[in-house]
Write a protein that binds this DNA or RNA. Structure first.
Lengths: 110, 110
DNA sequence: CTATTTTATGTCATATATGACATATTACAT
DNA sequence: ATGTAATATGTCATATATGACATAAAATAG
């Protein structure tokens, strides 16, 4: 991973280091962050596609507007669990979530 | 959802109620639990397929044997985040995780 | 421009997840 | 059977995620 991308992640609060020289993420660490960021961006896209406000989505899952903002911003202090709940409330099915993760193309169909 | 299945979930610690009459989960709540349970079972299957002990998997993600046992038992006091980290360390890619979620067939290919 | 809505950012008290540990239970050898 | 490794179950102190709230900043009317 290049230093620019790493810096971005560190600024968002991700613990990027701990791999010997603090210069590289393991493939698994990268994949984990990638999954989180992709799901986070899917939430934002789908929410907007439906014309929902962050407040509306928040209410639908018993959360708060600021929490949704943090999720969509890729804040690491948020869980995949809450993200999945958000997607499901947006009407995205398990199957569609799976398709989104497996297809590298950016989900035309949802 | 039938009462038998609900009882199983409640025994595992899931908050099943809060939907008016405490008899039904919303489709989204069900889907969320289903995703967790399927991923949990995928972890167990893939770990065994590789001949890893729970302790070995735990060490690979900086966790503990008991935590892996709880994940594989479907304990709700565990996060999707940790589960995904486990899968990735088992060599399951994001793409394969996606396929597993989208295909309803039980992952011959992984 | 000005008002109003929406989103972003920060803080805080509380809830939940965590690894570590002890120990029970089970599987699997020899 | 008897030991030995693997897994399950429970507890605890600590770390992290949480919703709520305040408020700033941006976007979108009008």
């Amino acid at each position: 991973m290049d230093t620019k991308k790493r810096k971005e992640l560190e600024e968002k609060g991700f613990k990027v280091g701990s791999t010997a020289d603090f210069l590289e993420l393991s493939a698994e660490e990268e994949a984990y962050i990638e999954i989180r960021l992709e799901i986070s961006s899917l939430i934002k896209i789908q929410r907007n596609k439906r014309g929902w406000t962050q407040q509306e989505l928040a209410s639908a899952i018993g959360s708060s507007q600021s929490r949704i903002a943090k999720i969509e911003a890729g804040d690491p202090g948020t869980s995949l669990d809450l993200m999945i709940k958000a997607l499901l409330q947006l009407g995205i099915s398990k199957k569609q979530i799976g398709k989104f993760l497996s297809d590298n193309l950016k989900m035309k169909t949802v």
